[in-house]
């Protein structure tokens, strides 16, 4: 695929209601996504991707799921791997898994994300300290949305 074609796709995506596009050609895979500002008005994009393919797809390269180091050094974000509802604790009566200032370790559960009644315990891949929690309990979160700001140790 030529650069020109990719730029055209980007323009088209910009004006469309979809937020991610994956094109597979013999030369490889092009994945373009944009930050969606439409909350809960569209079906989860990753799922559209799955639905349109006959065979089960392997996990695409999730740009939204990788750590996103900022200019500010040592800062990374834990982002949502799905569209769903964010829960800060395992039940309303218990303490949140983490708070601002909590020191987290790799493998530690930081929140629950629910989609279709699948309660996903999300484990941190980072060692560090929670600097900011960017969503509220029971908020809907989008695919790739930043949830926790972490100072990596």
């Amino acid at each position: 695929m030529k650069l020109k074609d990719i730029l055209t796709l980007i323009d088209r995506l910009e004006d469309s209601s979809i937020s991610k596009l994956v094109v597979e050609t013999e030369e490889g895979l092009v994945e373009i996504s944009k930050e969606s500002n439409v909350v809960m008005q569209s079906a989860p994009v990753y799922s559209q991707h799955v639905a349109q393919q006959a065979a089960p797809v392997h996990a695409p390269v999730h740009s939204g799921v990788v750590l996103a180091p900022e200019e500010e050094s040592g800062i990374a974000y834990i982002t949502s791997p799905i569209v769903g509802t964010f829960y800060s604790s395992s039940n309303p009566a218990s303490e949140p898994f983490v708070k601002v200032g909590s020191v987290i370790e790799e493998g530690q559960v930081v929140c629950i994300l629910e989609a279709m009644k699948l309660m996903n315990e999300i484990e941190s891949e980072l060692n560090g300290e929670i600097v900011e929690i960017l969503v509220k309990n029971e908020d809907m979160v989008e695919f790739g949305q930043k949830i926790f700001k972490v100072r990596v140790k």
Binding site: A59, V65, I78, K117, M119, E121, E125
Partner: peptide, 18 residues
């Protein structure tokens, strides 16, 4: 009713156990 719980690695999005 059904209560499904998964443990998921957020970086890879892979489910360790359900």
């Amino acid at each position: 009713g059904i209560l499904t719980e998964a443990v998921t690695d957020f970086e890879s999005g892979m489910v360790e156990s359900v």
